[in-house]
Design a protein around this nucleic acid. Sequence first.
DNA 1: CGGAATCCCTTCCGATACTG
DNA 2: CAGTATCGGAAGGGATTCCG
Lengths: 114, 114
Amino acid sequence: MGNRLNGFGACSTEVKKACPIEMTLHIIGGKWKGIIIDILSNNSVRFNELKRLIPGISQRMLTLQLRELEADGIVKRKVENTIPKKVEYSLTEQGEKLSPIIASMRIWGIQYMG
Amino acid sequence: MGNRLNGFGACSTEVKKACPIEMTLHIIGGKWKGIIIDILSNNSVRFNELKRLIPGISQRMLTLQLRELEADGIVKRKVENTIPKKVEYSLTEQGEKLSPIIASMRIWGIQYMG
DNA sequence: CGGAATCCCTTCCGATACTG
DNA sequence: CAGTATCGGAAGGGATTCCG
């Protein structure tokens, strides 16, 4: 199932047609994607920098989540083939449209804890 | 370990202190909670009506999700002990504060599919 | 530096059957 | 009507090791 990597909107297939809320939650859901998008808002960040900014994430999970976000058209990946290699991640236009939503989730979370 | 049911903010414990975004995503995440909150926005809905309004959800999952939302202080449950029983679900004040976020996720999803 | 590969455990979720 | 109980598969996620 789930054919990934067919570019923009590669999100998990059947979900698409169904409920847009479910689809959005599927794209930004999971343990790490929210904070990744939040950090990348109006920012271009390198892999290890990103890893440093997200306490507790493993290299494996960071890679996986970035790959999925990329496949869903949320994140861009820019490689400079210098030595050592340099890879910069940033949000696509679609991705930037998500960041206010993530930001409001942060606000809500803070007042919820308060 | 995750002590549930200690009322408001019973969300899974350790998450709380960490990242508010992660916590919010934990509360509204998963396959069904988004649409449940969306339907309950400014609405009081009975169990079976809710089930009817959410295509594909099983009785078990609806119950589970409602219980978690209740434990997290998002959803209220009102029982009338008539025969047959009547149970109405609605959002708490905290829950209503989530509904604009869910709504913006719906909007984003629609334009993303567009 | 920025990954990929493997292993393994936990959580999520669906199907089905039963109940006050 | 509004649930519970039980089972089993699928997906999510952590630890560790290896690589160009």
